[in-house]
Amino acid sequence: STQGAVSPGPPSVQPPWERASTPNKVPYYINHSTETTHWDHPQMLDLAAHLLQLNEVRFSAYRTALKLRSLQNKLCLDCVPLMTASEAFDLHGLRGQNDRILDIADMVLILRAIFESAAAEHPNVVDIPLCVDLALNWMLNVYDSQRTGQIRVLSFKVGLVILSKGHLEEKYRYLFRLIADPQQKADQRKLGLLLHDVLQVPRQLGEVAAFGGSNIEPSVRSCLGDREDLEVTHFLAWLNQEPQSLVWLPVLHRLAAAES
């Protein structure tokens, strides 16, 4: 592992904390005071403690939405418009590359571009090194718990877009476009991959049981019905019924809209 200087720019942690990397460049955090090491950034550990307190909230969709809103705020993804994330993905050659594997350097490059753009609009809110490290931390927690240092492009895009700023239908349409073929249709396999990646988000929050568990087959069957493949209108019609497996996402949007 490499302790000490890791990436250029100011560090996102202060003593007694230090950021280091494994041989496959996965960041981890050293606490010299407690002499411990952690995959989670110290501020992610604080956030996790806050999210545990939210377990007292009774209703599962509302509870999950509160957790997601806290996460969105902490990671400053509520300052990242969906288009900003989408443009960053395109600029880094990720369009149509769902199965390509991203390594840590790729992810950091894309996250940096995203948060530099967000910081231009919200300079007093977005701390770029911190946001990059927290977003990377969250994405690895959701899609690379074994810390191999690799995430598929589809998963990376889904994880960021879900928490980005945008209208609910905009997110739904974007998610569909990720799996649509040139005829704007998606098959059962691709729908399954998409729903699997979407459901990893509440799973990481300990909430997957509330939304039907991690088996996405019932959701795939419910969405497709008798069809062999899916068009965007069918996908939107299904989502507008707020199926149980995904109801946490429209509830997150209602929660955010209600804040004002």
Binding site: Q3, T22, T37, G206, A210
Partner: peptide, 17 residues
Amino acid sequence: RPKPAPTYRKPPPYVPP
């Protein structure tokens, strides 16, 4: 009651500076 998702692999052990 919600359960945390487990992380199976531990980070590198602590090494004093």
